[in-house]
Simulated scan of single mutants.
Amino acid sequence: MNETDIRKMAADVLAGIAPEADLSTVGDDEDLREALDLDSMDFLNFLIGISERSGRKIPEADAPRLQTMRGLIGYLQGANANA
């Protein structure tokens, strides 16, 4: 899974949770929750959607690593590299 695929997947998942949120306005190092005004349940649903779409189990303990686009991309590319 490349960076473009991950960004598209994240945007698609986000559209189902917070349709008004625009991922393209968020910098790679910005906290997704703050930048997109996601509450804890929205963010949890976002991670569940990413997990389902990517086919990768995301343990709750890893959630802090996925709070930015850079973190999400690195995490999923790292998971793919180790698969």
Rank of each mutant, 00 (worst) to 15 (best):
M1K: 12
N2S: 05
E3K: 12
E3Y: 06
T4N: 11
D5H: 11
R7Q: 12
M9C: 12
M9N: 01
V13R: 07
L14N: 08
L14G: 02
A15Y: 06
A15M: 11
G16D: 08
G16S: 07
I17N: 09
E20F: 09
A21P: 01
D22P: 02
D22H: 14
L23S: 00
V26H: 07
V26I: 11
V26M: 09
D28F: 12
D28N: 12
D28I: 05
D28K: 09
D29L: 12
E30S: 14
L32K: 03
L32G: 09
E34M: 10
L38Q: 05
L38N: 05
D39S: 09
D39V: 07
S40V: 01
S40H: 06
S40G: 07
S40W: 11
F43H: 11
F43Q: 04
L44S: 14
F46M: 12
I48D: 03
G49W: 07
I50P: 00
I50Q: 11
S51N: 11
E52W: 04
E52S: 11
E52L: 13
E52T: 13
E52H: 11
R53I: 00
R53H: 10
R53S: 13
R53T: 03
S54K: 06
G55K: 05
R56Y: 15
D62I: 02
R65I: 00
R65C: 06
L66T: 00
L66D: 01
T68Q: 02
M69V: 00
R70W: 00
G71S: 06
L72M: 15
I73C: 05
I73F: 10
G74Y: 07
G74R: 03
Y75G: 04
Y75C: 02
L76M: 13
Q77T: 09
A79N: 03
A81F: 06
A83M: 12
A83E: 15
